[in-house]
Write a protein that binds this DNA or RNA. Structure first.
Lengths: 203, 203
DNA sequence: GAGATAAATGAATGGCATTCATTTACTGAA
DNA sequence: TTCAGTAAATGAATGCCATTCATTTATCTC
């Protein structure tokens, strides 16, 4: 044996590469180079590039703060968890298309997060059969919001077509200098989801 | 002139190709072949493959039903619009990563949709400066839910790690035979968002 | 009919993930 | 100490991809 490579090392190198060059720079060749190894050597440890993305996902999932469910009341815990989840994945949106569709089997960190969140919901008095739908809805919102967070500030600039969309253009203008209110929108939507779901709790 | 190709034809061919072979099958070579033309000929009409994706996006946006805002009360209109939006894009998730970040300038169909939705919110009594944040939050939710809708039914199968995640595993089991409740979750989240945002309306 | 212009061609380029036959280096048993 | 087995790394090759470019073809205008 005596291998230079292992999954932990590959994961760390992939994360470093992504933070330095972005997901466009995450190629098997670049990853191998950063590990001082030939590209084909990676295939002794991962089956494909998608495997690398899965390793990165697992690492990120373990960074999502689900400990808040043990220390805060449910409303605050959900919000803190959601912010943490979104903040982490807004820097990793290319992963979302991969993971949103990925079975959770063999993803221990991801499962651990779901377990902590589920426990938090149970402790807050949710009926067991409503918990997964709530989590699914919250995750959908979080993933969508992660994309938003990376959008350019002028995404809603209607340009030449402003005259044909007067109400929309006025609504955008009314926001003032910051015309892409990603953070305000995230807070508003999260508040609405938490308020709506909170009503499902048993007494 | 007398060109075999134009943007409408390219858009139609791209949509046909996607519905037949999926987004993996949407290559410039395959697109050109389906149009009876050499791949390089496409570049006289579009600047890049991303341009093709933008054309497809515009076409899909025009299919989203925003006419409901003219005929239904606000709550029902938002829900009908959201369902239509999600249903269309759940078959086109690879576009989401592109468009969620894309400026709306020079996207007339997309702008027309935003204008119709904005008018619906105004008519329902929303303060002008809350409308865009509401739309942003709803869109985030819709895009995220579009990913969910394509997930496999057994995405939450915890497999060998079931014993270490007892609460989560039980919550999944309590859902019964269908263990990925994408539709239920979408309805629940949408109801919560609509209820929460509806409270912002002026009297 | 001449010249301009728009459009299509086919050959090239460079990057990409992945495969595979081969070699290297280490292990544990005789 | 030798030798066989094995895990890991190598480098060359494959096939697909988007994109570019010099060149040709066809059409329209004067």
């Amino acid at each position: 044996m005596g291998s230079v490579l292992d999954q932990a090392g590959i994961t760390a190198a992939a994360l470093a590469l992504v933070s330095k060059k972005g997901y466009d720079g995450l190629t098997m060749a670049a990853l191998a180079k950063s590990l001082g190894v030939a590209p084909s050597a990676l295939y002794n440890h991962v089956g494909s590039k998608d495997d690398v993305l899965r390793l990165v996902e697992e690492d990120l999932m373990s960074q999502v703060d689900s400990s808040v469910f043990a220390s805060l009341p449910w409303e605050e815990a959900v919000k803190a968890w959601a912010y943490s989840y979104r903040d982490i994945f807004s820097a990793h949106t290319p992963l979302i298309s991969v993971i949103a569709v990925l079975p959770v089997t063999d993803a221990p960190q991801t499962l651990a997060m779901y377990e902590a969140v589920t426990e938090g919901f149970l402790r807050a008095g949710f009926p067991e059969d409503r918990i997964i739908p709530c989590i699914v809805a919250l995750e959908a919102y979080i993933f969508g919001a992660a994309f938003d967070a990376t959008a350019p500030a002028d995404i809603f600039d209607s340009g030449k077509l402003a005259e044909s969309t007067p109400h929309f253009t006025a609504a955008v203008r009314s926001l003032g200098p910051v015309n892409y209110p990603s953070d305000l929108a995230f807070r508003m939507g999260l508040d609405a989801l938490v308020a709506g779901f909170g009503a499902l709790r048993g007494s």
